[in-house]
Structure formats: C-alpha cells, structure tokens
C-alpha cells in the first residue's frame, strides 16, 4: 500500500520535472531564436557580402529551427514600410517562396489560391513563432509582375472583391496558353457565387451552355485538378467543387 502510494507520488514528481525542464528549454530556444532574428537585421550587409559567414550563419539557423530563406526575406524587408520599394533581392527571394507555396499546394487547390491564403502561408512558414513575416499584397503583386516577365502561367484574378493567384503547372497541362479561358473564368465566378460549386444545370440556366460544352470544360478542369467531383448533391445531382474552398 505504502509502495503504491510512493509510486504515484514519484510518477507525479517525475511528470512535473519533465514539464519544467521542457518549458525551460523551449524558453531558452526562443530567446536564442529572437537573438538570431535581430542579428540578421543588424548585420544583413555582412551576411550578404561575406559568403563564408553566410554559410555558417545559415547552418546555425537550420540547427535552431529557423528557416534561413524566411529569415533572409525578413532581414531584407525589415524597417521598410509598405508601398516603398524594397531591395530587388527581397522580391527575388520572395518570388522563390511564392513558387514553392504554389507548387506545394497545387495538388490540393488545383492551381488557384486566394492572395489572403497565400500571404498567410508565406508568413507562417518560418518554422518558429519568433519570426513572423509581414508580406503584403503589394509585395506579392510586385513579385507576380516579375513572374509574368519570365513567362505566362501566373496571373492575378479579381473576383467579387477578392484577389486570387491562378498558376498553371510547369509541365504544361491542357491550358495551352497558360492562362485561364473565358469558360473557366465563368466557372470560377459561379463557384464564388454559390459558395464553392457548379452543376450542369446551373451552367445551363445561367450561361446557356449545352451539355457538351459543360462536359468538355468540366472534364478538362477535373483532369487539371481544378475541380473535385461530388456525387451526393441534392437529389443525387452531381456537383463540381472548387478546391481552394478547403483553405479559405
């Protein structure tokens, strides 16, 4: 009986010690992380110019769980208010990150992401809560302009007061010109209107499309991952959903 009592007491004690140690460690880690973030801003020139130093600094970042690319974006943009031009490097690196996010989320959203979602993805990928990026819509727009110069495939769409970034895959796919067709745009607009989906009936009643036209465009968009099929609509009607719904 006494032994059992002791065991319970020690279990509790052990749990407390574990908890305290782990909370102390995580405090120390965030102190170190914020020191590194500040350092990267104060010494950004040195880091930029001296490649040996930069390599070591990058390695240090990785070891303590800070994403070096996010840190670079942070240090290059630090202290410059929105609307004022930031160094060219800032946009180049941010651009890289935007392309990364687009590629990573492509299977899920089929290549359409709201700017709001894109910004929140960009701002939270640093690996630590100590470093929160403050990428603005202006920044993203500037980057997309640069991307456009590099070739078609990325384009900003305005619809119902919200902005979306539409990107086609690097490997092509069936959107020949890389942009969106008028029919696709109509479908997106209908999706925004209905809260996420279209049906043959809706397309027919609103745009006068016949079955063949509906089938062609919907089939194409399903194959590109731009629409998901749902066979359980009201009265068994098939609905075609626009997948960026999930992240918005």
């Amino acid at each position: 009986m006494l032994l059992r009592y002791n065991r319970e007491a020690y279990l509790e004690l052990g749990r407390l010690i574990n908890e305290r140690q782990s909370s102390q460690l995580s405090t120390q880690l965030s102190v170190l992380q914020s020191a590194i973030v500040n350092f990267s801003v104060d010494h950004r020139e040195t880091i930029r110019v001296n490649s040996e130093f930069r390599t070591k600094f990058t390695r240090l970042c990785q070891q303590v769980g800070i994403d070096p690319v996010a840190l670079l974006i942070h240090s290059l943009g630090a202290g410059i208010s929105d609307g004022v031009d930031k160094p060219q490097e800032y946009y180049t690196i941010l651009l890289l990150r935007i392309v990364e996010v687009c590629q990573e989320t492509r299977a899920m959203n089929g290549g359409l992401i709201s700017l709001k979602e894109l910004r929140s993805q960009l701002n939270t990928t640093s690996g630590t809560s100590v470093l929160e990026l403050k990428v603005t819509d202006n920044d993203v727009t500037k980057c997309i302009e640069v991307l456009k110069e590099l070739g078609n495939g990325y384009e900003i769409m305005q619809s119902n007061n919200s902005s979306w970034l539409r990107f086609s895959s690097i490997t092509g796919g069936s959107s020949k010109d890389g942009g969106i067709s008028v029919d696709q745009r109509n479908i997106y607009e209908m999706c925004l209107f209905t809260g996420g989906f279209v049906t043959y009936r809706l397309l027919h009643d609103n745009y006068g499309w016949d079955v063949t036209r509906c089938a062609t465009i919907i089939e194409e968009m399903i194959m590109e991952g731009l629409l998901w099929l749902d066979t359980q609509g009201l009265k068994g009607e098939w609905q075609y959903w626009e997948p960026s719904w999930i992240s918005n």
Binding site: G110, I222, W228, L229, D230, Q232, G233, W241, P243
Partner: peptide, 14 residues
C-alpha cells in the same frame, strides 16, 4: 466539411 471529400476522385493525383 468539403462535400467532394466523400466521393472517390476521378483524377488520380487528386
């Protein structure tokens, strides 16, 4: 809560 999650998707990547 995304309705198409409950239907097996025809696009294999998806």
């Amino acid at each position: 809560s995304f309705p198409p999650l409950y239907t097996k998707q025809p696009n294999l990547t998806v």
